[in-house]
Write a protein that binds this DNA or RNA. Structure first.
Lengths: 339, 339
DNA sequence: CCCAATGTTGCACACGTATGCAAGTCACAA
DNA sequence: TTGTGACTTGCATACGTGTGCAACATTGGG
């Protein structure tokens, strides 16, 4: 007997109690055994479920988290969304998903929309925010957590992997492999993750007295990375190793090296990526890469945003989680290292 | 001057008009030039945006679409979500994203949640619904559109590619290529898409007097498909062609064939997939596949769900969109066909 | 100059729920 | 029996917006 719209008043009438009694039963406030039983029975009979929007109006808590995401080509983000969604659902929250091109106006518009829906918190994945916008969110008491992207200033929380350290680990690995001419196709230098990985990488090389033979910004895009690979391999000092700023670009680079240039990986060139997306383990690429510990990053993100919702005085935090280098077959394996 | 919570009453007070005047300005109802100007100015000064939840309460339209999705490993779904999100945003709707394992109880729970949030419509991607559930949605006047999955019975809309026709096209292509022993690793036979592709494929082979040398359900899963490939290749009549129920599985199959078994594709075995996800075009796989016209499928999905929202009397429709076979390098190319 | 028609505005109420408050119930101990 | 405390329950109100209705302002034509 599912009727068009069932409200708590209908349930109250059928159960012979007041509307507030129904509300108390469903919001977990105290009520007598008999009332609970009557209400539950009536609700079941009518197929009643409390209206979340009305509930949100009155409590000021929508239990909705806004998730802003730029593009989903890079397999890392679908994987992250999948886990974020599951983790939030488990804790009684829901996701309002927004696509935003990574421009100031685009993000502005999207955040405005989210605020209009009274989201309790916002998670941005691979999207930068103007500090103006972040201040407005802070003024409204809406916590913002940036996933896989950091930002200077202290208005917001950010969860990333330990990108400098990660870049350094890759440098160490390539140095240990006795590579002579090391190149770098960088993650987008407009993003903190891209810059940090590059910095850590270059700094550790410098400690060993090595300078990259080339560094090109791959913009986190397949075609830019492919083009960068062509450019790099066309130059005089042809590299024997390339560190690519993420796996998504690394696949494009390997496609160019093997497909277009007929080179062997790692015979002629070693390739190392960053992320360890599922595809990196597939035999077709078998990519050596620095793993971003996605599960722990997601946990930290959820903990941070929900923690800040529950305790508004909590300060924003920037969390970096270190990940291991996953040694596979796309780069020469130094003596003493194992897969 | 962004204050904690700005309501239409605050704006009204500052503009020297009534709350209803503010409401009319923002909901597009008629108002005088001067009122509009005053309200706009006051709203801008206070940083006011109408509360979407309150608006949803009163109008009964939340402008939220529930999107239910099972898993995102298969690149086809992130791509679809990206486009669905963009298309819906463009038309003033927003996406409440829910993950659901593909079980009856899982979906039940998720749909309940969506209904509690008063979504205007529901799109399910690669998820089946019980007819009981669909009836309840229909009773509430919530249109449900299944994306890339069909279902018998007439309670709901479904957008798919022309799966039988597609399977038949693949059969034709493999027959034209003079393959002698054709095998099939099927899409999940619990889904309409999987069954339809198989049916169309097998029927067209039968017309030519050919029977598949093996058919195994790959469950739309990487490992099941890989295992199926091992089984199929271990049998006496080793196939020289395999039609795999989607690209995601086809990649796993190619990995097994080339990586584990050291076979050449298409030299020893031709492989054909279904979907044409972006990765199918990458040189590492260069997969011949039947394209699902994702853009047109998304358009049809959005049109259908919004159309049914605007006109509740509109009947559910089942739309099939045909796609072309994309000839690449993973399968022997018959005389007269071109890439 | 007046009337009707058209356009604008404010008042009051509705949407469906949560919650403070006061009244009521019940049991238990003195 | 009576008083006291612990629980329950219903009433009324609030959340922030849209909208019917009636009052009012404005305009144009005769």
């Amino acid at each position: 007997m599912t009727d068009a719209k069932v409200t708590s008043i209908d349930v109250a009438r059928l159960a012979g109690v007041s509307q507030s009694a129904v509300s108390r039963v469903f919001s977990g406030a105290s009520a007598s055994k008999s009332t609970i039983a009557k209400v539950r029975a009536a609700a079941a009979q009518l197929g009643y479920r409390p209206n979340s929007l009305a509930r949100a109006m009155i409590t000021g808590k929508s239990r909705i988290i806004g998730l802003v995401v730029a593009y989903l080509d890079n397999q890392f983000y679908p994987a992250a969304i999948e886990r974020l969604g599951a983790a939030l659902q488990e804790r009684g929250y829901h996701i309002l998903l927004m696509m935003a091109e990574n421009s100031a106006e685009g993000v502005e518009q999207v955040i405005q929309d989210l605020m209009a829906y009274q989201v309790d918190g916002i998670i941005t994945a691979s999207v930068a925010m103007t500090s103006d916008l972040t201040e407005r969110c802070a003024a409204l008491g809406i916590p913002v957590v940036m996933f896989n992207r950091g930002q200077d200033g202290s208005g917001f929380s950010a969860i990333t992997s330990a990108n400098r350290e990660g870049g350094a680990k890759v440098a160490e690995f390539l140095l240990a492999g006795a590579h002579q001419r090391i190149a770098h196709i960088a993650g987008w230098q407009g993003s903190s993750t891209g810059r940090d990985r590059t910095e850590g990488f270059v700094a550790r090389l410098a400690e060993a007295g090595v300078t990259p033979v080339a560094t090109i910004d791959g913009m986190y895009a397949r075609d830019a990375a492919a083009e960068a690979a062509r450019t790099i391999m066309a130059q005089d000092a042809r590299p024997d190793a390339i560190f690519v700023g993420n796996d998504h670009m690394a696949f494009a680079v390997m496609d160019v090296l093997r497909g277009e240039l007929g080179l062997s990986v790692p015979g002629d060139v070693s390739v190392v990526g960053y992320d360890d997306v599922p595809m990196a383990a597939w035999p077709a690429y078998d990519l050596t890469t620095l793993r971003q510990p996605i599960n722990r990053m997601v946990e930290a993100t959820v903990d941070t945003v929900l923690g800040q919702i529950e305790d508004p005085d909590r300060l924003p935090e920037k969390i970096e989680i270190a990940g291991p280098l996953i040694v596979r077959g796309s780069a020469r394996i130094p003596e003493g290292w194992t897969r």
